[in-house]
Design a binder for these strands. Sequence first.
DNA 1: ACATTAAGTGATT
DNA 2: AATCACTTAATGT
Length: 216
Amino acid sequence: MEDFNKEIFELVHQNFPGLAELALQKEIAQVGSLKHFKAGEVIMNFGSYVKLVPLLVKGSIKVVREDDEDGRELLLYYLYAGETCSMSFSCCMMDKRSDIRTTAEDDSTVIAIPVKYVDEWMSRYPSWKNFVMRSYDSRMQEMIKTIDTIAFKKMDERLLKYLKERSIANKSRIIHSTHQEIAADLNASREAISRLLKQLEKKGVVTLERNKINLL
DNA sequence: ACATTAAGTGATT
DNA sequence: AATCACTTAATGT
């Protein structure tokens, strides 16, 4: 009867206190599997069918959307421990192809739940339903925030916000990437990023090296 | 030493 | 702020 994975059971406790029912916790530990990703690894790519819903227990995951036309990318948000990918819910339940790509920003661990349970639990466990709703809601809030950042804020503020977020995601003040990559994430031109970074350096907010930005 | 890739610059729109 | 056309600097082979 108690043939569930103790490790997962513990991880659920630590990272998802909102999932209250003991029976639910046990079920997760029964059907979920742990998956580890190294920093930079692609977890889900555009166009792939989503058949697992990830519950993030360690690390951070970068969620990116690809533009239909010219294949440019735009950073949507980062996920942290205790969160899940809301996109995956809608995607998998409607059996749709993924519009987004997720990559591990840092070394990460997720509990992967097969889709069939995700749906089933919605009706059986109130706290699961609540969890799903809540993650939709908070993601929606995030999106609205980033939309008006894009619409109303200047590029330099966006850049700074981006650097801070990456610093958090990597648990390091040193951001290891090129101006080109940053420009792609914010979908701006490389030159613009270079210029803004130099302004930030003058202001003493960062120091710059090749492939490296030090946030002070 | 040479080639490649990243970053800096100024002009143009 | 984007794009272009360079230049300069750092790094890899």
